[in-house]
Design a protein around this nucleic acid. Sequence first.
DNA 1: TGTAACATGTAATCCGTTACATGATTGA
DNA 2: TCAATCATGTAACGGATTACATGTTACA
Lengths: 186, 186
Amino acid sequence: MALEHAILVALLEQPASGYELARRFDRSIGRFWTATHQQIYRVLKRMETDGWVTAEQVGQEGRPDKRRWSAAPPGRAALAEWLRAPVQPEAVRHELAVKIRGAAFADPAGRAALVAEVERYRVDHEAVLARYLAGERRDFPDATDPDARAALQHVVLRGGIAYERMVLAWLDDVLATLRDLDRPTS
Amino acid sequence: MALEHAILVALLEQPASGYELARRFDRSIGRFWTATHQQIYRVLKRMETDGWVTAEQVGQEGRPDKRRWSAAPPGRAALAEWLRAPVQPEAVRHELAVKIRGAAFADPAGRAALVAEVERYRVDHEAVLARYLAGERRDFPDATDPDARAALQHVVLRGGIAYERMVLAWLDDVLATLRDLDRPTS
DNA sequence: TGTAACATGTAATCCGTTACATGATTGA
DNA sequence: TCAATCATGTAACGGATTACATGTTACA
């Protein structure tokens, strides 16, 4: 389990309320770890009882109070220990690949529907790539990153960009393959 | 949920016992969907009560009997319906990326440990790529695939190959970035 | 007046993982 | 004799998802 550790990294980068954390998990952190606000509140509570994080009550005008969470020394120690542990092999769940192999057992109409769906999926990934590239121009404009944190955030973002480019190229391959199946006798 | 559908595709490609299915989920199918034998037996039972699959008792000499499962017409119908449905956005869980961003808060010794871990991880992915390429030479030797099933299996495999190549290139980027952090003042 | 954003939770259910369990055959 | 492979399960636990729940402010 690494949601605790993802939250620790997020809080070390910038202390935040549960709500703000949930929003960051929808944006930058969500590129490599997703979590809903329900999960985040539950895990924050557990981390608080373990002494990994501490909350500071922040009163706001015209808004509900919030609790700003920070990583505490035991949390930093737990993170350091986890960083030394081997990376767990990831559970792969690639639904589109299942559908593509399943298309062998669909009729032409079913395959046409899948082509349309792959095209839609491709548009989504084009948008994701565009967002990543815009984020890169905005957050890492210099050729060399100023500090360790920026350099590491940047290399993770470059990973996301490389992933999206690979996906787009592969989806073109998939579309060409699917369309070839129903070509009138090549 | 798509484990049911992954099992349907696997059984349409080739009827199999639960044990054989589990082994295929460790190999070719495991490239895009992982499942343990416990999951598979549980889901097969559910699919049987739903009429999606049927079992044929196969007696064997010198081996325990096995039940060979096949996809039944209601299963094929369920698969066709699922193929038309939109692809669900995938939950991203990329532990290594969390660790890399976490490295900003580690000391040089902790970062050195991470470099070693990334190198080990890279060796694993080199091995995976080599297996994929060997499988491609073995199963798809011709320039053009003979039928729809082969063409679709091949394009999914090409996706795996493209993914592994992307990962290896990115890991080189990661290693260079991590090593630069502790360079004596560039 | 209604919707989106801010802010924090509980409850139920489902799914996945881990551990446990059994028993036969083949080959080193 | 011991390990690996074949073959099929049950049970417990924990994590993730989905639905429900509440209340405020800003803005169209």
